[in-house]
């Protein structure tokens, strides 16, 4: 595994769109070549070298390329976008679309991330040690194919629209979430260890949501059926009140049985 270390110089005045900061783009390139990769600050097309000090060469393939991003990345977007393999570690906060449309590999952000992170994710692992804003692991506007695979783990809180149009994969939020969890969900699993304000599972067709804390306003379309024991997160076997829904939404049948979305509320 080769490591490329980027240190943000903080020379951008507006937001920097660093869509080429991925193991895929860095693979097979020297530090100098990486410095020549394109990025955008508003309508000014720039090169990564203008905005980052770059140390180390990329590995032969994406899978054996590791990228460590240092310095203040709070105003840098699109790190890890569409990556398929390898690893990125961001040591500060970073902005939108981090790990967006990710297919494989691993991204770790040690600070907070803004909105639309992990959007359209298909595989890999995305870890946020701080908080995430809105539309975590959601779908791009209009796309009915939201998160389809992979794991997102946010150690802090998340905002609204977690996992909209989710179809697969897993999202774990250690803290609270706000409105709209798994809206239009068609599969996958969301675990929220804190509280949620409301609209959990609205228009949900299929999928599982576990909430350890309180849901302030439950959707009318969810109906209590039974208590179950389940292991939402490995090694944490707990008892949950099991609700099915959204009874206002369409549901398909499998072997004569209607498949509902599920909310598991910790007892």
């Amino acid at each position: 595994m080769s490591t490329v270390t980027l240190t943000a110089k903080g020379t951008h005045e507006l937001y920097l769109e660093a869509y080429n900061v991925t193991p895929d783009a860095f693979a097979g390139k020297t530090a100098d070549e990486i410095a020549g990769l394109e990025c955008h600050e508003g309508n000014r097309k720039g090169k990564l070298g203008e905005y980052f000090d770059i140390d180390g060469n990329g590995g032969e393939t994406a899978a054996d390329t590791q990228i460590i991003v240092k310095g203040n990345c709070k105003k840098i977007k699109r790190i890890g976008q569409q990556m398929t393999a390898g690893e990125i570690i961001v040591e500060s906060d970073c902005d939108m679309y981090t790990a967006g449309w990710m297919k494989g590999g691993k991204v770790t952000v040690k600070g907070n991330v803004d909105s639309f992170c992990g959007i359209g994710m298909a595989g890999g692992e995305f870890i946020v040690e701080g908080n995430a804003q809105n539309y975590l692991g959601s779908a791009y506007r209009g796309d009915w194919r939201g998160m389809t695979g992979g794991l997102i783990h946010v150690k802090g809180n998340a905002g609204n629209d977690v996992a909209t149009f989710m179809r697969g994969g897993k999202i774990i939020i250690d803290g609270d979430a706000f409105l709209h969890v798994c809206t239009h969900g068609e599969g996958g699993t969301v675990v929220i260890k804190g509280n949620v304000e409301s609209r959990v599972g609205g228009q949900m067709v299929k999928g599982d949501i576990y909430v350890y804390g309180q849901i302030k306003y439950m959707m009318p379309g969810f109906k209590y059926v039974d208590d179950v024991e389940a292991e939402a997160v490995e090694g944490e076997k707990l008892t949950f009140a099991h609700y099915i829904g959204d009874l206002g939404e369409r549901h398909s049948k499998r072997k004569g049985e209607i498949i509902y979305g599920n909310i598991y509320l910790k007892k």
């Binding site: 569409q82 449309w101 791009y140 506007r141 209009g142 796309d143």
Partner: peptide, 9 residues
């Protein structure tokens, strides 16, 4: 109008 995803990538 209704298909932004038809433009994405």
């Amino acid at each position: 109008l209704m298909r932004p995803e038809d433009k994405l990538f």
